[in-house]
């Protein structure tokens, strides 16, 4: 699967309180959550972001709370992918469970806000600034889960079978 999109850069340790502040957590509607995504750092982000844009971050993206509202807020804005140096572990599971692709690659210093990059999610090849960077492969177990349509579809099949 190939995605091509504009970049939004966020630094290291972007925590889930930034991705979606707790004051909005009584909402479960992804559209409402999306309207407040990244609000403490970039209040205009939800207005200015376009479907297909990509988040690029540093280390430990998604650290903090287990709130699944975080990947929901990101996907609600039409963002298909986050590329970061590393991800926090609960966010990593949550993102794949909610259909948000994550790739671990160190491209933060190679790109600037607004650049366009092209990413082949299945091979992990990221084309940025005329250069190809290979992301760390998604663990085979996660790939299997994704191919089954995610954890919930896996569970559904299990219950039906």
């Amino acid at each position: 699967m190939i995605v091509k999109g504009r970049i939004w850069k966020f630094g290291d340790n972007i925590d889930t309180d930034i991705i979606i502040p707790a004051q909005y957590l009584a909402h479960t509607d992804p559209k409402v959550l999306g309207q407040h995504c990244m609000e403490p750092l970039a209040p205009n982000f939800p207005k200015e972001v376009r479907a297909g844009d990509i988040i690029v971050s540093g280390t430990n993206f998604g650290c903090g709370s287990s709130r699944e509202h975080a990947p929901l807020a990101i996907t609600a804005l039409g963002i298909p992918l986050v590329v970061a140096k590393t991800f926090a572990r609960i966010f990593y599971r949550n993102a794949f469970n909610k259909g948000l692709a994550l790739l671990e690659a160190d491209i933060y210093d190679l790109v600037k806000d607004g650049d366009e990059i092209e990413v082949d999610i299945s091979t992990g090849i990221i084309r940025c600034g005329g250069k190809d960077v290979k992301a760390k492969p998604i663990p085979p177990f996660m790939v299997e889960l994704i191919n089954e349509g995610g954890l919930i579809n896996h569970l559904k099949k299990k219950l039906e079978g």
Partner: peptide
Amino acid sequence: GMGSTDITY
């Protein structure tokens, strides 16, 4: 800790 979907599972 995990997210809500994992807990459903």
